[in-house]
Design a protein around this nucleic acid. Structure first.
Length: 444
RNA sequence: GCGACUAUAGUUUAAUGGUAAAACCUCAGUUUGUGGAACUGAAGUCGAGAGUUCAAUUCUCUCUAGUCGCCCCA
């Protein structure tokens, strides 16, 4: 009786992963690796090099700039045995800024760095937002001019294209914190509290619908809300002159964005639009902000984005270094690829499966497998000693392209029949030609 | 932290106040050195706890988990 009770207890251990995090079964890893491979390939083609860091950071790193609420309510924070406050990183940029600040004098600028770290946020999971995710971070430090903005945004564009997205699948929205600030302060004459409320409201615009948005807007802005609605509708930055006073139209922020958009269009990136309502959550952005937006009406939302943060090194007491970058999360891009059927089919990494006629041939199979692996061939040996037909069926399920059977004949003659699992054809060749044979077919 | 909905086999789904079914998957076989098909068979399930009832997988409550919103937004 006691034993049963104990067994029952043991059986109760839950098989589900911890809330908001994922298990990655081989088929998931295949997708994950594909996504990471594309990311690496593209950013490296732009000259970015990889860095990494521990997932643990002192909590103080996030208190300075990320925004109080994120630290207090949305991080995994604990006290270690030495009484230190520790946080599982909720984003990579502070870590990156810390690393850059520390080695500032050794590093060669402009600095092009990337990483694909995982990060944690304590919040309620929902579509596209889990408690743990991986995020490509691409940043360039040390370039003040708008050309860094151009490079980063064009990189994001190329990345989307490489994933198979078409120009009309997504749109690149750009804005500048500088423009927003001058509109808020100089044109609308808002105080800090009002700015905050307005930013929040703009952020919710797509969600709450036009009527609610305009109603709430008029509470904050009063008679100026009509003018502001006009501003938000602008898609071409040149139209600013019709709604804003001259000194704003000629401000640095507006000019920069004009140049940015023109340069991107000039490079053939046509799906860039000016989006005066684009805010983004972080406090540390200083001018350019951008978002890659899914144009599919069923999934109308920002997939990823970034911006310029020229002042972030302040928090380490260092001189400022201009910087711009973005983060692309694996969950959202995976959703996107699934919706648009852009994920590649699974392909076996093993190219040769060795069937053994009976278990006495397993040793021989192992011997030839070792030699073939020396030639960089991925080889799997069947250990089941099932019937040959079952072993073939196994190879078939695994999607392995070639099979060879080892039995009496092969051991005697040193010749092997290689079966192509796609065509069903068999070819008898000598052992030392197997590698060449498979390589020649694989490259075709 | 708040709200709505959901929970049946490894997966996708049925049915039912009298302890459950199908498909796919898995395993075994259709006589033994060649797979993808077909056929035969096997294994496997009511998220947890409490209540109502003669009887609960079904009704009620609590918890847990998931999904989708709100808040927040890398």
């Amino acid at each position: 009786m006691e034993k049963n009770g104990l067994e029952e207890e043991l059986n109760k251990i839950n098989k589900e992963p911890y809330k908001g995090v994922r298990d990655f079964y081989p088929e998931d890893m295949f997708v994950q690796n594909y996504i990471f491979d594309v990311m690496r390939k593209i950013v490296e083609s732009f000259g970015y090099t990889e860095y990494s860091a521990s997932i643990l950071e002192p909590t103080s790193l996030y208190k300075a700039k990320s925004g109080q609420e994120i630290v207090n309510e949305q991080t995994y924070t604990f006290t270690d045995r030495g009484g230190r406050e520790v946080t599982l990183r909720p984003e990579m940029t502070p870590t990156l800024a810390r690393m850059v600040a520390k080695r500032k004098r050794d590093l060669v600028f402009p600095l092009r760095w990337y990483s694909i770290p995982n990060m944690f946020r304590y919040e309620r999971p929902q579509k596209g937002r889990l408690r743990e995710h991986w995020q490509l971070n691409v940043d360039i430090f040390g370039v003040k001019s708008i050309d860094a903005d151009v490079e980063i945004i064009s990189l994001a564009y190329i990345l989307m294209k490489k994933f198979g997205a078409k120009d009309n699948d997504f749109e690149i929205r750009v804005n500048s914190r500088k423009i927003l600030n001058s509109i808020f302060r100089n044109f609308l004459n808002l105080d800090e509290e009002e700015v905050k409320n307005l930013m929040k409201l703009i952020d919710r615009k797509e969600k709450i619908g036009k009527d609610d948005f305009e109603a709430e807007l008029s509470i904050i802005l009063g008679e100026k809300s009509d003018a502001f609605i006009k501003i938000l509708k602008i898609k071409n930055i040149l139209d600013f002159s019709s709604v804003l006073p001259k000194e704003l139209v000629e401000s640095e922020g507006v000019k920069d964005i004009q140049i940015l958009i023109n340069k991107l269009r000039d490079m053939g990136i046509k799906n860039v639009i000016f989006s005066p309502g684009l805010v983004r959550g972080f406090d540390y952005y200083t001018s350019t902000v951008f978002e890659i937006y899914d144009t599919n009406p069923n999934n109308n939302r920002a997939m990823f984005g970034g911006g310029r943060y020229d002042d972030l090194l302040d928090i380490f007491g260092e001189d400022k270094i201009p910087a711009i970058g973005f983060g692309m999360g694996d969950v959202t891009i995976r959703d996107f690829l699934e919706t648009h059927k852009l994920l590649p089919n699974h392909k076996a990494k093993v190219c040769l499966y060795i069937c053994t006629l009976t278990d006495e041939y397993i040793s021989h199979a192992n011997k030839i497998a070792i030699k073939l692996r020396e030639n960089d061939l991925n080889v799997e040996v069947d250990l089941t000693s099932k019937k040959v037909s079952d072993q073939l069926s196994l190879a078939n399920k695994k999607g392995i392209p070639f099979v060879v059977c080892v039995g009496e004949n092969e051991v005697k003659t040193g010749k092997y029949k290689i079966k192509n699992m796609d065509t069903g054809e068999e070819k008898e060749i000598k052992f030392d030609q197997i590698s060449n044979f498979i390589s020649s077919i694989k490259t075709l």
